[in-house]
């Protein structure tokens, strides 16, 4: 039994008066592929946004590789993490966003190179080689000097994945990465994710509405409903053997 690389312990999150997450407990093992499914508004995205430090939990602990993400020790007390601590712990995490969030003022090669150079202080030559390699892998080796505005949505999302991968994360988060795409562009993005799931030994967490795809590649599926993990297990456990009625209803709607 390996130690989990990510552990959520009774994590709550509320926005104003709205309790979005009501006690999340969750273990993710290294190299595990986890899919989070559930109705919209159930807090799926919030889970990975807290892990990426974009959202602060209201209570509970998130442990990444043995370190508490949002809290740090100071004079023998646990206090709220500062920027320095957050940067130390989140260094192993990468994320791909629904709306790509590419940097529009940089070419796609620069998009990939900027963080390794400035954040990880790696050598420019090494980073350039790795970035080109990664962009070739996602099928964009021809577009290195293009700007994001010159690409299609599917291409943008593939650049976003390459950009995250160049940082060599141990954990990759995918936040509804196909929701903003035209239907005919979804396939090319899913192909890249499938390739990563098969060949990379990093942990992956996917928040998605592409149900069949998620069930296909995931080692573990979480069904999030009304702020709690209502069901979890392998894909077949969750789909075929669950007696949770809301899950059945949800699956019927999404799988037709």
């Amino acid at each position: 039994m390996t130690d989990p690389i990510v552990r959520f312990q009774d994590v709550h999150k509320s926005f104003g008066d709205v309790n979005v997450l009501k006690g999340i407990n969750l273990d993710i093992k290294p190299a595990e592929k986890v899919a989070i499914i559930g109705p919209s508004g159930s807090g799926k995205t919030t889970i990975i946004r807290m892990l990426m430090t974009l959202e602060e939990p209201s209570s509970g602990d998130i442990i990444v590789d043995g370190k508490n993400l949002w809290k740090m020790e100071k004079n023998g007390h646990m206090v709220k993490a500062n920027e320095k601590h957050l940067r130390e712990v989140r260094g192993d995490i990468g994320m791909v966003f629904q709306h790509f969030n590419l940097f529009p003022h940089m070419t796609i090669l620069e998009n990939c190179m900027t963080a390794p150079i400035h954040v990880k202080k790696e050598s420019k030559e090494e980073v350039r080689d790795r970035s080109i390699q990664m962009l070739e892998r996602v099928g964009l080796g021809e577009k290195l000097d293009n700007y994001p505005s010159q690409l299609s949505g599917g291409q943008k999302q593939r650049v976003a994945m390459a950009r995250a991968l160049v940082m060599r994360p141990k954990i990759m988060l995918f936040d509804e990465v196909t929701s903003a795409l035209d239907p005919e562009l979804v396939g090319e993005v899913l192909e890249v994710i499938r390739d990563l799931a098969k060949h990379e030994d990093m942990a992956m967490v996917l928040v998605t509405h592409e149900m069949d795809f998620a069930l296909d590649i995931a080692d573990k599926v979480l069904f999030l409903d009304e702020g709690v993990i209502a069901e979890q297990g392998t894909a077949s456990e969750v789909i075929e053997h669950s007696e949770n009625e809301r899950l059945q209803g949800f699956l019927r709607r999404f799988r037709g």
Partner: peptide
């Protein structure tokens, strides 16, 4: 806002 979030996801500091 997504720009600053993407930069955070790449582990940039506030200044970066």
């Amino acid at each position: 806002k997504g720009q600053s979030e993407a930069a955070t996801a790449l582990n940039m500091s506030r200044f970066q």
